[in-house]
Write a protein that binds this DNA or RNA. Structure first.
Length: 876
RNA sequence: GCCCGCGUGGUGGAAUUGGUAGACACGAGGGACUUAAAAUCCCUUUCCUGUAUAGGAGUGCCGGUUCAAGUCCGGCCGCGGGCACCA
């Protein structure tokens, strides 16, 4: 008996058995009967070639959910594939001379083997890689459909250029002014690029966020901010007559956008973006302005200290009429802080109530005219609640002169110095201003979004070729659908910087599909975020197109928070676009009904005295001092950080699985920390998990040994049964709510109880409980669970067995223990029948001997009885 | 600067949404078994009152609401994340 469980022997055996029985294949809708469907998906991995702990945690979570749903009777789809296009393959080609495709497929094979070792309940029948020609060919077909429906267009624009990867980046892919992958400072370049009209959907993408109630608020807020809706006024400032305007300028006036029409009376000047068409036109005949534009462009690319970037301006000498002060005119400046990409690229400046305008006005000696009086504290509209600390420097209210202001006032208040608008609250003045300007035909209320169209052209080889042909005669010609896929050529070289497709001697030379004259292919490929924007729809229909509508949307998506904006926003756009071109039947356009973003796996870091990082398996304790094993040098323990190669604090899952088994690794990454938070990997932690594994095994062994038998101790048996049902219920809901750490704690407690009741006359109850325990354990430690299931004498797989039945009668106790408080302090506890009336409870509580010293001789003012919870006696 | 989120033992964290704070685990200490070790098992482990059947304090800080606050409200402090010249 009491053998030890050996994961190294048992785990591969069970995985083989699952595979042979095709246990995790999703049922075709026509075979599913009335089973509800559950599409569980983890963000598919990039095939780097090796698994890391972050993967283990991500896929373990998805697997728990997936196995749980299966046990609960759902028809589960839990597929896996590979996000296989991208730069690392090209880097490998450049460094090692391997073809990106070969490198990628080798990595996939290696990684798939490691994935299989985790014992995940995956339906591999739908596997694909995004670099499979079948996949990217389909993606090309989608592109052409988008093009046909006007969802794709080409335009020349300033783009973010990554000088290391030598390619364009979307705005979403620029983080802190650096390329999201290369980390290199991004430069601005003018290129002709393909764009997706994601802004067409801005309103809907924002609006529908509200309905994604199974998404983390955090992600919704991030997307909301990213889309960045603002309401304001777009209006025209008319030119002062008799000025020499460039030919291209609109004689009617200058269009600006503002969200503060209420401050129109505080207008001091107009500011144009350096990239505004009017600025460019003026610069053609003005060298000083041209050099000013160049200065701005340089600062624009340095990015890093943009915060400190000084306000720079250039007076064009032009003037416009002040729309609310007849006879008054305003100067037109070019200002480096005005962005061409937002609104109209021109603003009216109200220095008194905008900090940027204020800084600019101070620097160039422009007027500052306050038009908002701060709210009186405590009055309606005042949100500060306390004495405003700006009181001290508000002498400008009395003086009416902005020169006294120490900074722009942007808080709540009432309008002043604004003729008829005086006395209005800001919120009242805005619509009033818009209405008045509109009535005069000078503008109208508009909504603006921060979101820009998605630039998808990339100057890379290892991606989906954009299926169009450029013809001198016909212009841009889509590749005819029957000529798809446009395959990537295999014979490419990476010895030159830039795009290998553009360098290829023959690939791009084709005849124009329309006129037959020599033409050339587009050599740009699609941003790889395209690949991941619809792969989940492909999984759904991998075996039968008709399944797509059945499986979508994904019921539960699991992945990293780093995709909060990029991947998740693009996917939401893609589903809407695919819906609108008839490629997917998904009315809401929402691909992911539920989303969970998991935390990272972290580890302590170690450094030698000279600052060299040391890996965890290279250190040991010698005489109480941490040293590097090879050199004996002392090592200091640093911060706990995300596992990364550069910090050398990674732990290889392969080694962990070889030592402790997949179950222990899975168990540990899910225990202790809540799944959305980071978990610190520790050796002691895995050892604890491995210990628990053995504990379960020895428990099951003992239960199997003594057999079901009979219960001789009624009370203990009832206890055992109650715990079993309560625990099963607790674990059930904890899994549904992504509280895996709580589920694990419940299993620990349960096992502890079953251990303690060995030989206590509850064999029958313990035997039932053990069956239930193994059922609950299965999603977490599937291999061990199978072994235990077999040891307990069951046929078949526990992985294919229904979730244990919960008897509601077992969830409530006959008697409950109630704490008794006196004036809110706990003084005693009593045991009462579940059904006891509040009066009976009160009587029993007041009679409790342990309480007497606290209530004796005191007047009882009130007794609060909350049945099943607490009794509180209030005494004088 | 703006927008989110979070502050609980030595550590990771529980606490049924206002009702016994510290479940569970890690670590630490003590003990049993053993020739010994490993493994396993048992006990202790928020702080203070030298002892505790007992009492007091306690969930970042200050105040409030309530019979009752880790949980709700107001104000501070600290940490983490996102956005960042978006008019």
């Amino acid at each position: 008996m009491s053998s030890r469980y050996n994961p190294q022997d048992a785990e591969p055996k069970w995985r083989d058995a699952w595979r042979q029985n095709d246990l995790f294949k999703a049922k075709h809708p026509s075979d599913a009967g009335d089973m509800p469907k559950a599409y569980i998906l983890e963000m598919f991995p990039y095939p780097s070639g090796r698994l890391h702990m972050g993967h283990v945690r991500n896929y373990a979570m998805g697997d728990v959910v997936s196995r749980h749903k299966k046990a609960k009777g759902y028809n589960v789809l839990h597929p896996m594939g590979w996000d296989a296009f991208g730069m690392p393959a090209e880097n490998a080609a450049m460094e090692k001379g391997v073809h990106p495709g070969e490198w990628t497929y080798q990595n996939i094979a290696a990684m798939k083997a490691q994935f299989e070792e985790l014992g995940l309940s995956l339906d591999w029948s739908r596997e694909f890689a995004t670099c499979d020609v079948e996949y990217y060919g389909e993606q090309q077909r989608l592109f052409l459909k988008f093009l046909e429906h006007g969802l794709v267009y080409r335009k020349a624009s300033k783009v973010n250029w990554d000088p290391v990867d030598q390619t364009v980046l979307a705005n979403e892919q620029v983080i802190d002014g650096r390329g999201w992958r290369s980390g290199a400072p991004v430069e601005q370049r003018e290129l002709t690029q393909w764009f997706f009209r994601i802004t067409d959907y801005a309103e809907d993408l924002l609006e529908k966020l509200k309905e994604l109630d199974r998404w983390p608020d955090k992600v919704r807020v991030m997307q909301e901010n990213w889309i960045g809706r603002s309401e304001g006024l777009q209006m025209r400032f008319e030119w002062v007559e008799g000025q020499a305007l460039p030919a291209s300028a609109d004689p009617a006036g200058l269009e600006i956008y503002t969200t503060r029409p209420d401050t129109l009376y505080g207008a001091s000047f107009i500011a144009l973006s350096p990239d505004h068409p009017l600025t460019i036109a003026l610069a053609e005949n003005d060298e000083a302005l041209q050099s000013f534009r160049e200065t701005c462009a340089q600062i624009g690319t340095s990015e890093v200290d943009i915060e400190k970037a000084e306000k720079l301006g250039f007076d064009t000498g032009l003037r416009v009429a002040d729309p609310v002060k007849p006879g008054k005119t305003l100067p037109v400046w070019v200002a480096n802080f005005v962005l061409m990409g937002y609104g109209t690229g021109a603003i009216f400046a109200c220095p008194a109530h905008d900090q940027r305008d204020f800084d600019f006005a101070r620097k160039y000696g422009l007027p500052i005219l306050p038009v908002v009086r701060p709210s009186i504290p405590g009055s309606p509209g005042d949100k500060s609640g306390t004495q405003s600390d700006s009181d001290s420097d508000q002498s400008w209210i009395e003086s009416g002169l902005g020169e006294d202001m120490s900074g722009a006032y942007v808080g709540p208040g009432t309008i002043m110095n604004s003729a008829d608008w005086d006395g209005l609250a800001i919120a009242e003045a805005k619509p009033r201003a818009i209405a008045e300007i509109a009535a005069r035909g000078l503008g109208e209320g508009t909504t603006n979004f921060r979101l820009r169209d998605w630039g998808v052209s990339r100057q890379r080889y290892w991606g989906t070729p954009i299926p169009v042909i450029h013809c001198d005669e016909c212009g841009v010609v889509p590749v005819p659908v029957e000529d798809l896929p446009v395959k990537l050529p295999d014979d490419v070289s990476f010895d030159k910087p830039g795009n290998p497709l553009a360098h290829h001697p023959t690939w791009k030379h084709v005849a124009c599909p329309k006129c037959g004259t020599p033409a050339h292919r587009e050599t740009d490929t699609l941003d790889t975020f395209n690949d991941s924007s619809w792969y989940f729809a492909r999984f759904a229909s991998a075996n039968d197109p008709a399944e797509r509508a059945y499986w979508l949307p994904v019921d539960q998506y699991v992945g990293g928070i780093e995709h909060a904006v990029l991947h998740l926003l693009y996917s939401r756009f893609f589903m809407r676009a695919m819906r609108d071109v008839g490629e997917v039947d998904l009315p809401s356009g929402e691909p992911f009904a539920g989303l969970f973003t998991q935390g990272m796996v972290t580890h302590e870091t170690y450094k030698t005295g000279n600052g060299r990082w040391v890996s965890p398996d290279q250190i040991e304790l010698r005489d109480g001092v941490m040293v590097e094993i090879d050199t004996g040098l002392p090592v200091t323990v640093g911060a706990v950080e995300k596992m990364s190669k550069s910090k050398r604090n990674t732990v290889d899952p392969k080694a962990i699985i070889a030592t402790y088994g997949a179950d222990a690794a899975r168990w540990f990454v899910l225990s202790d920390s809540p799944p959305e938070r980071d978990v610190e990997w520790t050796e002691a932690g895995v050892e604890g998990a491995a210990r628990f594994l053995q504990r379960v095994w020895s428990l099951v062994d003992a239960v199997a040994e003594s057999g079901p038998g009979a219960d001789t101790n009624e009370a203990t048996a009832l206890d055992v049964r109650r715990t079993a049902h309560k625990s099963t219920h607790a674990i059930d809901t904890a899994i549904d709510e992504f509280r895996f750490n709580s589920a694990i704690a419940a299993m620990h407690e349960w096992v502890n109880q079953l251990k303690k009741t060995e030989g206590k006359g509850a064999d029958a109850a313990r035997s039932e409980a053990a069956d239930m325990l193994i059922g609950c354990l299965t999603p977490f430690m599937p291999h061990l669970a199978e072994a235990c299931w077999q040891r307990l004498g069951h046929e078949g797989f526990v992985s294919a067995t229904a979730w244990p039945d919960i008897d509601p009668a077992m969830l409530v106790d006959d008697t409950v223990t109630l704490p008794i408080q006196v004036n809110g302090k706990r003084r005693a506890e009593i045991s009462v029948a579940k059904t006891a009336s509040p009066d009976a409870i009160e009587a029993q509580a007041l009679a409790e001997p342990a309480l007497q010293s606290h209530i004796e001789g005191k007047a009882i003012k009130k007794v609060i009885v909350v049945p099943g919870r607490i009794v509180n006696i209030v005494v004088a």
